[in-house]
Design a protein around this nucleic acid. Sequence first.
DNA 1: CTGTTAGCGCCTTCAA
DNA 2: TTGAAGGCGCTAACAG
Lengths: 330, 330
Amino acid sequence: MGVTIRDVARIAKVSISTVSRVLNDKCNVSEDKRVRVERAARDLGYIPNPAAQSLHSSRTGSLGVLLPFVSGEFYAEFLNGVDKTAQNGDWLLMISTSHNSEDELRAALKGMYRRVDGLLIMAPNITAESVLMQPHDDIPVVFVNTRCEDEAISLITFDNHGGMREMTRHLIATGHTRIGFIRGPVLAFDAAERERGYRDAHREAGLTVNEELIVPGKYSQQSGHDGAVRLLGMDPRPTAIMASNDDSAIGALSAIREAGLDVPSDVALTGFDDVPSARFTVPPLSTVHVPVRELGARSIEVLMECIKTGQISRLPHQTMDVELRIRKST
Amino acid sequence: MGVTIRDVARIAKVSISTVSRVLNDKCNVSEDKRVRVERAARDLGYIPNPAAQSLHSSRTGSLGVLLPFVSGEFYAEFLNGVDKTAQNGDWLLMISTSHNSEDELRAALKGMYRRVDGLLIMAPNITAESVLMQPHDDIPVVFVNTRCEDEAISLITFDNHGGMREMTRHLIATGHTRIGFIRGPVLAFDAAERERGYRDAHREAGLTVNEELIVPGKYSQQSGHDGAVRLLGMDPRPTAIMASNDDSAIGALSAIREAGLDVPSDVALTGFDDVPSARFTVPPLSTVHVPVRELGARSIEVLMECIKTGQISRLPHQTMDVELRIRKST
DNA sequence: CTGTTAGCGCCTTCAA
DNA sequence: TTGAAGGCGCTAACAG
């Protein structure tokens, strides 16, 4: 069932080691036999059995990617960068989701044991440390956008705090003092960081945060919608609303317009992430640009580099810059 | 490097075959040894090496998923359904993209050779037949939203033609006769089907299609924007614009509003797919609902079923229903 | 330069 | 009920 190296050897009238040599080393083989082997392999459509190769080399040629979710533009863009880079490096991708559950993460990790040569983990509401002492003790792991104190763990993040602080400053500079804030998921570290940016900007401007103006959210469009409804029901209502990400901003936008209000003249609105859609909302959304695709690409590059050099993750933490994209919603 | 069955046997003071029996068969082992083995395996954190298992059983425990792209809400939602279903069935997912290139598809297929037990392929601008006689001759393959005449190939699609025809009828019934159409990618079979639906509805209503009103697009937000700009520049301008998918509708919406026009009073607008965002545009988008997530889930279910029963794809073609979601943009 | 052989880790007959 | 042994397909020493 399936062509093996033995078949190729038989057809080419050589031993299996010669076939192996031709297909790998490429040295110490007479021209005559080489062409015979290459011909036979091609004719038979021979492809080495990866399980056998892996059993021998203990390498798999695949990378594991563990995300909280796979839906939504943010993750899709991230995956886009991941996929492209991995494909360029000729690596296969094994993808799984944790739904932000530590148990699911552990299960997925276990499932990928010895099936991947490296691991990319995004887990915003789990600490990197809590996950590391898993079965995978001998392959490199890169964490992305995850809470992690340990400098010995490879980590790539972006400036959640700084981005939101800058955006808040922008709003304050435009004269807003009553700024509603739609939070992200309670346990997500990035959501907490973004909120901290909001608070710090207020403090730095000598403003005290009105806790009532901070409403819960879940990064989803629906939760953004609901959060905005709640904020707009307050009296006096906020003059600006900051959503913790673009999806919730998109939901908020629809709620604001449903209320018969205009953006930005009645209420200013901001997002975070700068997903592709953000340029096409009406009005185009002012948001914090996160280089999501590059983030995915970079993470895979680091992972591939670690694998090549045999390092089990000792790279300095990297933080990618974010940048304000002021469009028409503020 | 890594705990093997031999280590477990040594610790449990039994032979490796007994360990194997305990971990698999679960029969013909004395209670005494069973607990010893189970204890040893647990203590050592033993996980069988999948490469060795696979080499012996020639099964891998993974499913291959080949999509044209991975970005955008449509594919993200599809993957969502795929991921969830696969995870429930305890399958790992190997994911790759073809960018609608037949060469890339072939390369990915080759890369997955013997690494997966089944294949899910979405390739809107390639025919299923052209891909089938690939290395994978002995595993089930399910095609999704792909052109395919051969009834012996497993295929799951949705009604691209019918959905767009119905939506066109809706517009015609609302009094529109000058309806702009933003196409999808030239080579995509689904885009062609949608256009055919647009044309058929016109014909059935006794209307002749004005070819000028059909402008090119690529399913992207930007292309939708550009297409709408072009349509709005015509004199007289269309009273309605149909985008071939929601992303291009979102782009078109922004162009319409930039032109200072209102939706739907100046120009009606429709999409296709019903991605999550469609409910949150302003105004909410009338579109054709495609059960994308269910499509992903169903495809994986079929695949798992084929694998379980050992069928190499002989299931009747399935077509999933689509359904009009008339919201506020028409 | 080439073929024989010993594993990689696991499962599964085959004897005992 | 148990252990020894062969083999899955491949690579890499080791002899020739």
